[in-house]
Amino acid sequence: MAIIEWLLLLFLIVCAISVSITKSLLNSVIIFMSYSLVMAVIWVLLRSPDLAITEAAVGAGVTSVLFFLALRKVGQLEHKKDEEEKE
C-alpha cells in the first residue's frame, strides 16, 4: 500500500515538472489531465470520496476540455493565418 502511495506522489511530481518543461502546449494539457486523474485516485486513498468524484468530473473532465477548446481555437486562428498568407 505504502509503495503505491509513494509511486503516485512521485508520478504527480514528474507530471508537474514535465508540464513546466515540455514545449508543446497540447502535451502539457494532456499531462495535466493525467495529473488530475492521479490526484482523484490519491483522494480515494485519503478517504475523501466526495473529492475524488468531483475532481474526476471537474479537474480531469471539464477543466481539460476547456483547455483543449482554447488550444483548438488558438490553433484554428493560426491555420487561418497561414492560409491568408498563402493566398
Partner: peptide
C-alpha cells in the same frame, strides 16, 4: 499564458492535496 493557467491549477490542486 496557457502554461501559466495550468500552473495555477497545479498549485490549487496541490494545496487541496
Amino acid at each position: 499564458l496557457i502554461k501559466k493557467i495550468i500552473g495555477l491549477n497545479i498549485m490549487d490542486t496541490a494545496v487541496y492535496l
